[in-house]
Design a protein around this nucleic acid. Structure first.
Length: 445
DNA sequence: GCATGATCATGC
DNA sequence: GCATGATCATGC
């Protein structure tokens, strides 16, 4: 391709951005002469390639070089979709670059390969819609993105969590659930592809640095808001990772009983006392403060522990729909998305007098290694529904991680099932015993 | 102490 | 009025 014919000055960030921003509010069909994309929807990345090839007029490459090498800018296209309430959410994580286990162990975060790739990104977000030709995706946002100061601390913690595992010779134990904003996400699901690592003979899955979807959702919405209002948000002075920030909020209240907390925070004693205490301590009423939380997609859960550290109760999720269960694969299910969520466990422990005292907080997400077991529970219940036996649950003794149990107003609160009579509402629960181990692990870190 | 069915209480 | 998070109650 003839360099002289580029419709922008490749040496000028401004020129590139002015040209790029013309895309906003339009589709590729409107803005390029691309008549068709080879087998649309078929190939992943068809949209991104088309942007590079037909709009910016350069050949897509997968080399180490930035896409705009003269100014060190990386081009990233990424899909947004609308959730039930019409808000934009990132459809997927944003993959940055492959992790080379052999070299990453010698890097430091600030000068890492990841930071080189992620430090300056021309982000193009488009609205993904089912059954729509990629040429007709509407481009929602075009902006230059750099990792915000306030996010660097957590990002670095995430990076080091992963790299430390490689340094310890345990690249095969890396899990996407280890981290908060940045994750080491698996590439190539098929088990034939495995990579060597420097400090162990064990082969590990190939992984790439990626910004989590929940993080991208926050980033993109913030950019969209900012563009709409034409204002710049001043960066705060947060110097802590999410867990440290949250813990520091809770710390003054550790050791207090529910009654003492209620009194101290001016809340009446009720069944959702713990939830309200959590809200109050987190300062949910104050938008700016919970920002960190939303960005990380973290959901609080109250758990009361017995003296031996076992939760008094299992933890429930929303009730499921029997029709939906019958026809939805595990990976596409709500249950799966609940398990892909990071939770803040707010832990109360019973004392000698039988009063529950706020003891600790811990971040938890189901480890990838346990997903197959959860999947087994899901499939077993799905099978029951397909046999017209939604009344049959999956017992806590049948599955190491989770079980199925009623979850309605009362026994008359039923839902229809596809092949049998209506059955009381049910949902998936995390086994109290499984949680005991997971909580110990999460707190041990 | 544990498994499981049943129900409560609040917010939206 | 329902969905949801949380907890109670019973039987072994």
């Amino acid at each position: 391709m003839d360099q002289d014919k580029l419709p922008y000055d490749k040496f000028s960030v401004d020129s590139i951005m002015v040209y790029a921003e013309r895309l906003e509010g339009h589709t590729l069909r409107e803005m390029t002469d691309a008549a068709e994309l080879q087998s649309p929807n078929r190939r992943r990345g068809a949209f991104g390639n088309a942007v590079e090839q037909y709009y910016f007029k350069y050949k897509p490459n997968s080399s180490q070089e930035p896409d705009f090498p003269e100014v060190g800018i990386e081009l990233k296209t990424t899909p947004l979709k609308r959730d039930k309430s019409g808000r934009y959410v990132a459809k997927e994580r944003l993959v940055v670059n492959m992790i080379d286990y052999d070299t990453v162990v010698n890097e430091d975060f600030e000068r890492s390969h990841f930071m080189q790739k992620a430090s300056k990104v021309l982000l193009i977000s488009y609205l993904w819609e089912k059954d729509v030709d990629p040429l007709d995706y509407k481009i929602v946002l075009v902006d230059l993105w750099e990792i915000p100061e306030v996010d660097l601390v957590q990002m670095k913690l995430d990076w080091e969590t992963v790299v430390d595992k490689v340094r310890a010779g345990h690249a095969e134990d890396i899990s996407g659930s280890d981290t908060v904003y940045l994750e080491a996400s698996t590439k190539a699901a098929d088990s034939s592809k495995r990579r060597t690592q420097p400090f162990s003979p064990v082969l590990a899955k190939p992984r790439a640095w990626a910004l989590k979807a929940s993080y991208m959702t926050a980033v993109e919405n913030e950019m969209i808001d900012r563009r709409r209002q034409g204002i710049k948000r001043g960066a705060g002075e947060k110097d802590m990772g999410v867990l440290e920030l949250v813990r520091s909020r809770f710390e003054p209240y550790f050791g207090l009983s529910e009654e003492e907390l209620a009194q101290r925070l001016g809340i009446s004693k009720s069944k959702d006392l713990c939830a309200r205490i959590t809200k109050r301590i987190l300062g949910v009423d104050d938008d700016a403060e919970i920002d960190e939380f939303v960005k990380a997609g973290i959901k609080p859960k109250t758990i009361r522990l017995r003296a031996n550290g076992t939760p008094k109760e299992s933890v429930s999720f929303p009730a499921f729909d029997y029709y939906k269960l019958a026809e939805t694969d595990f990976e596409d299910s709500d249950f799966y998305s609940y398990l892909q969520t990071k939770y803040l466990f707010v832990l109360y422990e019973i004392d000698g007098e039988g009063a529950y005292r706020l003891r600790d907080v811990a971040l938890w997400q189901m480890p990838d290694a346990d997903l197959p077991e959860a999947r087994r529970c899901y499939e077993q219940m799905r099978e029951n529904v397909r046999r017209g036996r939604a009344d049959v649950s999956v017992g806590a003794t049948e599955n190491r991680c989770c079980h199925v149990r009623p979850h309605g107003r009362d026994s008359s609160d039923t839902r229809p099932q596809p092949y049998g009579p209506p059955v009381v509402k049910k949902c998936f629960w995390l086994n109290a015993h499984y949680l005991a181990g997971e909580i110990a692990r999460a707190r041990g870190k």
